[in-house]
């Protein structure tokens, strides 16, 4: 139907935009950096407020003698088991975040913030993915989809392609980017561990983007970002069985 070449070329961003839009719309990269930085701060405040409100309502219910069975975006102090339900997939993967969670990982009270960042990422990823897919052919298999994420989505969002893709052929893919753009400029005067701790916060939204894109392709994956040395970032993509 479309005479022009399909995607999965080394420079898909220019091609795809040309295909879909005629002329690509661009803006300054620093503008997005500023937005992301303040977005995290703004969401931290808003999530704290929303969490406090939910807690207040729960307290009201308790005072009225009612018991709460389950709250969807509950307060940050649930028991271990409840937390597992909330975080869902995150428990199942052994990441550095969960291993060193108390020392280097994100604080407990950041959980509502994490959920919000991931949700925003998923929304962005799903829609970007849909626009990228518009003029390309059907995917042949799961690996084809993952490759699409590594090449096309990566290039659109983060200006380059994934440096290394590994898989165990049983539904786990590890995507490694040796210089991941969203965390490339993060540093801290408090030293490297602190820089990495901060970088983890900024890797959540990208993880959401990947997860959202895969979801729009029909794969209900879990995506866990891991950072051990800046500016390198790996994403562990875990597909449900049988995918």
């Amino acid at each position: 139907m479309n005479p022009r070449p399909s995607t999965s070329t080394p420079i898909p961003m220019a091609n795809l935009n040309a295909l879909s839009e005629g002329s690509p719309r661009l803006i300054d990269g620093a503008a997005l950096d500023y937005l992301t930085i303040e977005l995290v701060n703004t969401l931290r405040a808003s999530s704290a407020l929303a969490t406090a409100r939910i807690k207040a309502v729960e307290q009201e219910l308790l005072d009225a003698g009612l018991t709460i069975s389950q709250s969807p975006s509950g307060p940050p102090l649930p028991s271990k088991k409840e937390k597992g339900d909330l975080a869902g997939h995150r428990d199942s993967t052994t990441s550095l975040v969960s291993l060193k969670g108390s020392k280097l990982g994100l604080d407990e009270e950041d959980e509502p913030l994490r959920l919000r960042l991931e949700a925003i990422g998923m929304h962005v990823g799903a829609n970007i993915c849909e626009r990228l897919c518009r003029d390309r052919g059907l995917f042949t298999d799961t690996l084809d989809m993952i490759k699409f994420i590594c090449k096309d989505l990566w290039a659109t969002c983060w200006d380059k392609q994934v440096d290394n893709l590994r898989t165990n052929h049983r539904g786990v893919y590890v995507l490694q980017d040796n210089s991941f753009k969203p965390i490339a400029r993060i540093s801290s005067w408090e030293g490297r561990p602190e820089s990495i701790r901060r970088a983890r916060l900024y890797a959540i939204l990208p993880a959401g983007i990947i997860r959202g894109a895969l979801a729009r392709l029909g794969l209900n994956a879990t995506v866990t970002p891991e950072i051990t040395t800046l500016p390198q970032c790996t994403f562990q993509v875990k597909l449900p069985k049988g995918a």
Binding site: M13, N17, P24, R25, L26, I27, D28, G29, A30, A31, L32, L35, T36, L39, T42, L43, S46, S47, L49, A50, R116, A119, I120, H123, V124, N127, I128, R131, T156, C157, D159, L205
Partner: peptide, 22 residues
């Protein structure tokens, strides 16, 4: 250093939605 404007627009839009909910 140029980036895709759609990425920016979608991110901002999702943020506004989240703030409305919060």
């Amino acid at each position: 250093e140029k980036i895709n404007a759609e990425l920016f627009a979608l991110t901002y839009g999702a943020l506004v939605v989240q703030l409305i909910q919060d």
